[in-house]
Amino acid sequence: MYWNLAMMDWNNVTLDLNRRTNDWNVTTTDWNSLTMVQNVRTVDGNGKTLGRGFIAMLNTLSAISGLKPLRVRIRIILQIIQCIYYPILAIVAVPANIVTVVILSQEKCGLSRCVSHYLIAMAIADLVVIIIDLILRRIPFVYVVENHLFEGIHVCNIHAVFIHAATDCSVWFTVTFTFDRFVAICCPNLRSKYCNVKTAAVVLATVTALSCSKNIFWYFMLSKKYRDRGTSWFCWVTRDVQASPFWAAIEFCHYIITPGVAFILILLLNVLTVRHIAVTSRSRRRLHQQSNRKSTKDPEMKNRKNSIILLFLLSGNLILLWSVSMVYSIFWRAYSFGYKSVYLPRYVMELGYMLQMLSCCTNTVIYVITHPKFRKHLKNIVHYPFTPIVKCIKH
Rank of each mutant, 00 (worst) to 15 (best):
L50R: 15
R52E: 09
G53N: 01
F54I: 07
F54N: 01
A56L: 12
L61A: 12
L61T: 11
A63E: 14
L67I: 11
P69G: 03
L70Q: 12
L70C: 11
R71H: 13
R73E: 13
I74M: 04
I77H: 09
Q79M: 10
I84Q: 02
P87R: 03
P87Y: 04
L89R: 04
I91N: 04
V92D: 02
A96Y: 02
N97C: 06
I103M: 00
I103E: 05
Q106F: 14
Q106G: 10
K108A: 02
C109A: 11
R113L: 15
C114H: 07
C114L: 08
H117N: 13
I120K: 02
I120F: 07
M122W: 08
A123R: 03
A123K: 03
A125S: 00
V129F: 03
V129P: 06
I130R: 08
D133G: 13
L134T: 06
I135W: 10
I139F: 00
I139G: 03
P140Y: 06
V142T: 12
Y143D: 06
L149K: 13
F150W: 11
E151Q: 15
E151F: 14
I153V: 15
I153L: 13
H154E: 10
V155H: 11
C156Q: 07
N157D: 07
N157T: 04
I158N: 13
H159W: 04
H164W: 12
A166E: 00
T167G: 14
T167L: 12
D168H: 01
D168N: 15
C169R: 05
C169P: 01
F173M: 01
F173W: 03
F173T: 00
V175S: 04
V175M: 00
F177S: 00
T178N: 09
F179G: 11
V183I: 10
V183N: 07
V183K: 06
I185E: 09
N189T: 15
K193A: 15
